[in-house]
C-alpha cells in the first residue's frame, strides 16, 4: 500500500491514537507499515516534533488598553440608544408611508450621531469626571434657539400633515422630549459628568434633526420647497 494512502492515519498516530486502544483496522495496518517505512518514520518524528513545539508556544497578553476600549464602547452602547430602541419598537406597519420614511431618517441620524461621537471621543472606562463645561451650556443654548425656530415652522405646517403621520410624530417628539428631560436631570445631579453633557447634546441634536425632517416632510406633502427648513437648518450648522 502506498504511503500517501496512510496520511490521515499518520496524523492521527502523531496525535496519539494507537491501535491497541481502539479497534481500528487502518490504524493497525499503518502501525505495521510504519515499522518498515523510513519515509513514514521520518514524517512521524518531524510532525511530533512540530506538534510538541507548537503546544509549547507562549501565549501573548493583550495590553490593558484593549479592555479599556471594550468597556468604554459597551458603556456607550448601553447608555446611548434607549430612546432609539423605543422608536424602533414603534410598529412601522401601522404608520403612513411618509412617517415610516421619517422614522428611518431619524434612526439613521441617531446611529450616525453615535458613530460620530464614538469617532470623536477618547476611550473612557467610566463616566469621566471633569470640570463643568461652559461650552456645553453654549451649545445647549444654540440648540434651543434652533429648536424654537424650527418648532414655529412645524406648528405653522402642522395642518399639512395627515392625522396618522401627526400622531406618530407626536409620539416621537414625546420620546425625544423625555430623553432631553432625563438628560437634564442627570446633568443637574452631576454637572461635571461628561457623559451627561454628551447625552443631553445628543438628544437635542436628534430633536433638531426630527424637526428639520418634519418641516421637509410637510413641505413635500404641500408641494413646496422646504426653504424655511433649509434656512432654519443653517442655524444649526
Amino acid at each position: 500500500m502506498s504511503c500517501e494512502l496512510y496520511d490521515d492515519v499518520l496524523d492521527e498516530y502523531v496525535d496519539g491514537a494507537r491501535a491497541a486502544d481502539r479497534a481500528d483496522a487502518r490504524l493497525a495496518a499503518f502501525e505495521s507499515h510504519l515499522a518498515g517505512c523510513a519515509r513514514c518514520q521520518g514524517l512521524v518524528a518531524d510532525f511530533a516534533n512540530i506538534r510538541r513545539t507548537a503546544a509549547a508556544l507562549d501565549e501573548h497578553l493583550p495590553p490593558p488598553r484593549v479592555w479599556a476600549k471594550i468597556a468604554s464602547s459597551i458603556e456607550q452602547e448601553e447608555r446611548q440608544p434607549w430612546w432609539a430602541r423605543s422608536l424602533a419598537n414603534t410598529r412601522a406597519a401601522r404608520l403612513p408611508l411618509a412617517a415610516a420614511a421619517l422614522l428611518a431618517l431619524l434612526l439613521g441620524g441617531a446611529a450616525w450621531l453615535g458613530w460620530q461621537q464614538e469617532r470623536g471621543s477618547p476611550p473612557q472606562t467610566t463616566a469621566a469626571v471633569q470640570t463643568p463645561d461652559a461650552g456645553t451650556a453654549m451649545a445647549e443654548q444654540h440648540y434651543e434657539e434652533a429648536i424654537a425656530g424650527l418648532q414655529q415652522i412645524v406648528d405653522a405646517r402642522d395642518a399639512d400633515l395627515d392625522p396618522g403621520t401627526r400622531a406618530v410624530l407626536r409620539q416621537n417628539f414625546a420620546v425625544i422630549d423625555r430623553a432631553i428631560n432625563e438628560s437634564r436631570e442627570a446633568l443637574s445631579d452631576e454637572p461635571a459628568s461628561a457623559l451627561a453633557q454628551e447625552s443631553l447634546l445628543d438628544a437635542l441634536d436628534t430633536k433638531v434633526a426630527l424637526l428639520q425632517d418634519t418641516v421637509a416632510l410637510a413641505s413635500e406633502i404641500d408641494g413646496d420647497r422646504p426653504d424655511d427648513a433649509a434656512g432654519a437648518a443653517q442655524v444649526n450648522q
Binding site: E59, H60, L61, P62, P63, V66, K69, I70, S73, E77
Partner: peptide, 28 residues
C-alpha cells in the same frame, strides 16, 4: 478568554495593532 484569543489573532494577522483592533471587535 482574552489571552488565548489574542494569541490566536496575533498569529493569524502577524500585526499587534491589527490583533488589538480585532480582539476588541470580537468582544464587542
Amino acid at each position: 478568554h482574552a489571552r488565548r484569543l489574542f494569541s490566536l489573532v496575533l498569529r493569524m494577522t502577524g500585526s499587534a495593532e491589527d490583533a488589538e483592533d480585532l480582539l476588541q471587535e470580537v468582544f464587542l
